[in-house]
C-alpha cells in the first residue's frame, strides 16, 4: 500500500502509537497536534491524503470542526476519516457522522483492529 495518512491527536504518545501501527502498512505519516495544526500541514503541501485518523477533544480546533473543514474541500470529500476518541456515547458518534466521519472508534483501539479497519475502509 502507498500513500499518506494524517494522524491528529494532542497526545504525543497516542500519535506515536497510531503512527507505529499505521506504518506497518507501509504508509507515510503526517502528524498534527490539533485540528488547526492539521489544516496548516495539509494546506502547506500538495500531499494527497489516503486516509485521516483524528481525535475529537483537542485544543484550538477540535476533531468535528477539522472533519467538517476537510469535507468542504473537494480533494478530501471522499477520503475515509476515522475518529478515535475516548467518548463512547451515541450522540458523539452521530455528531461525528454528521461532520463527515466514516468510522468512530473508541480509545483504546487494538492495533490489529485499527489495521483491519483501515484496510476495510480502503477496500484492500
Amino acid at each position: 500500500m502507498s500513500g499518506k495518512v494524517l494522524i491528529v491527536d494532542d497526545s504525543e504518545m497516542i500519535r506515536n502509537f497510531h503512527s507505529y501501527i499505521v506504518k506497518s502498512l507501509g504508509l507515510e505519516i503526517i502528524t498534527a497536534v490539533d485540528g488547526a495544526d492539521a489544516m496548516e500541514k495539509i494546506y502547506g503541501s500538495d500531499d494527497e491524503l489516503l486516509i485521516c485518523i483524528t481525535d475529537i477533544n483537542m485544543p484550538h480546533m477540535d476533531g468535528y470542526t477539522l472533519i467538517e473543514r476537510l469535507r468542504e474541500d473537494e480533494a478530501y470529500e471522499d477520503i475515509p476519516i476515522i475518529i478515535i476518541s475516548t467518548e463512547d456515547e451515541m450522540k458523539d458518534k452521530q455528531r461525528g457522522f454528521e461532520a463527515g466521519a466514516n468510522l468512530y472508534l473508541v480509545k483504546p483501539t487494538e492495533p490489529d483492529e485499527l489495521l483491519l479497519n483501515i484496510r476495510m475502509l480502503l477496500g484492500k
Partner: peptide, 13 residues
C-alpha cells in the same frame, strides 16, 4: 459516504 464504507469493507471480504 456511509454506503461507501460498507462497499469497501464488503469488497475487502
Amino acid at each position: 459516504r456511509a454506503l461507501k464504507s460498507i462497499e469497501s469493507t464488503a469488497r475487502y471480504l
